[in-house]
Simulated scan of single mutants.
Amino acid sequence: MREPNPEKLNELVGKLVNDVGVSLAGASILLGDRLGLYRAMADGKPVTPSDLAKKTKLHERYLREWLCGQAASGYVDYDSDKDTFSLSAEQAMALAEEASPAFFAGAFDIVQSAYLDEPKVADAFRTGNGVGWHEHSKCLFAGTERFFRPGYNANLVSSWIPALDGVEAKLKAGARVADVGCGHGASTIVMAKAYPKSTFFAFDYHKPSIERAKALAQDAGVGERITFAQASAKDFPAQDYDLVAFFDCLHDMGDPVGAGKRVRQTLGKDGTWMIVEPFACDNLKDNLNPVGQVYYHASTFICTPASLSQEVGLGLGAQAGERRLRQVATEAGFRRFRRATETPVNMIFEVRA
């Protein structure tokens, strides 16, 4: 057995203790989200466990333990003089207010799916087979929508579409738009609400997601202006689209080049392919940071297994980077490719023939 450096060992153990706490805190966030605890505290008023029990009709002793854990994690504030707990405005935005651009509780539905589906992924490691999107636990589908929706709400209409050459004017005047790999339709609904003169078509191979997207679109008042259909990225119907959008899904596809070729076939004259992908640099060393940590782990359990379950199985992964994405677009026959804009968690590309 090799002799460890005691200082480095202590540092690593300290990090692991922190990570165990963070991992357990994720389940606690799920619990608070499911039971409406954050929403019950969203007004910022200090509460005792007894107060929260009366508001939520839940058991006081359980609530005290949950509140203590939340305070230890920094997710709620604790006043030791009054023995009360409260949500700051920032904590409420992140954990209680689903319409907030900073809402983060939905991410832990994705984390839960990674734990639930670990045996399937472990088997894929042994066999080299994939794990299809549809083979994951249901919490992944809702969690993905809840995780990405705040970013779409905050950025899609305000900055991403305006960064594309001439696209915003077309959408305002009335354009034909395809949202491929739409999932629960969060991105499609945002666009449909913002551009009432345009017509939207949304496609996903996962039928339960399409059914859920239809319901959410009706709730949002745009159900009559979006045509949802079950279709893959390589066979969605051609309509001479002015814009074809792929939101956080190209890297999940087994044959992204084949999907790009289908986009070329479906675009109208001077049409645009918008690709939104997780933020990543081209070199691994530049992705060794908190954002890369999230995406590499998610890619291990979700994105790479999804790609390897399909034909070709290119396995781009969630940290493909601009260089590899450009290569995909070029091999699909597109000549113009540029990064239009970015956020700390996404890159937005404009691709044209």
Rank of each mutant, 00 (worst) to 15 (best):
228 F>C: 14
309 S>W: 11
306 A>T: 13
256 P>S: 03
49 P>V: 09
294 V>S: 07
191 M>P: 10
194 A>Q: 15
167 V>N: 07
3 E>F: 11
252 D>F: 13
271 G>Q: 04
183 G>S: 03
172 K>M: 07
340 A>N: 03
187 S>N: 06
208 P>W: 07
67 L>A: 05
144 T>K: 04
12 L>E: 10
312 V>L: 08
150 P>N: 02
63 L>N: 05
34 R>A: 15
72 A>S: 15
188 T>P: 11
63 L>T: 13
299 S>T: 15
284 L>I: 06
89 A>G: 12
181 G>A: 02
91 Q>H: 03
204 D>G: 05
267 L>F: 04
304 T>K: 02
209 S>N: 14
74 G>Y: 02
336 R>L: 09
20 V>R: 10
73 S>I: 02
175 A>F: 01
64 R>M: 12
56 T>K: 00
5 N>Y: 11
343 T>Y: 12
50 S>E: 14
328 V>P: 01
217 A>E: 10
339 R>W: 07
53 A>H: 06
47 V>H: 09
263 V>F: 03
128 G>D: 09
161 I>F: 00
94 A>L: 00
267 L>Q: 01
239 Q>L: 11
276 V>S: 02
255 D>P: 04
112 Q>R: 08
15 K>Y: 02
87 L>T: 11
345 V>L: 13
206 H>D: 03
312 V>Q: 09
247 F>P: 01
51 D>A: 06
63 L>Q: 03
229 A>Q: 15
69 G>H: 10
225 R>L: 10
146 R>G: 03
122 A>Y: 06
83 D>W: 14
292 G>Y: 08
53 A>C: 14
196 P>T: 11
220 A>H: 09
131 V>E: 01
349 F>A: 02
88 S>Q: 02
142 A>S: 15
233 A>N: 12
5 N>W: 10
187 S>F: 11
261 K>Y: 13
44 G>L: 03
213 A>R: 06
17 V>K: 15
73 S>R: 00
127 T>G: 05
184 H>A: 15
293 Q>P: 07
223 G>F: 01
38 Y>F: 05
256 P>T: 00
110 I>V: 14
208 P>A: 06
56 T>I: 04
33 D>F: 03
78 Y>M: 08
336 R>F: 10
10 N>E: 12
244 V>R: 00
290 P>N: 05
134 H>R: 13
140 L>I: 06
170 K>R: 14
323 R>K: 07
166 G>F: 15
252 D>C: 05
122 A>E: 15
275 I>D: 02
329 A>G: 13
261 K>A: 09
31 L>C: 11
337 F>R: 00
247 F>L: 01
187 S>I: 07
347 M>K: 04
50 S>K: 15
206 H>L: 13
332 A>C: 12
230 Q>E: 10
20 V>E: 08
195 Y>M: 01
39 R>E: 01
5 N>K: 07
337 F>A: 03
325 L>G: 01
49 P>R: 00
122 A>W: 12
96 A>M: 09
4 P>Q: 07
221 G>P: 09
280 A>N: 04
312 V>C: 06
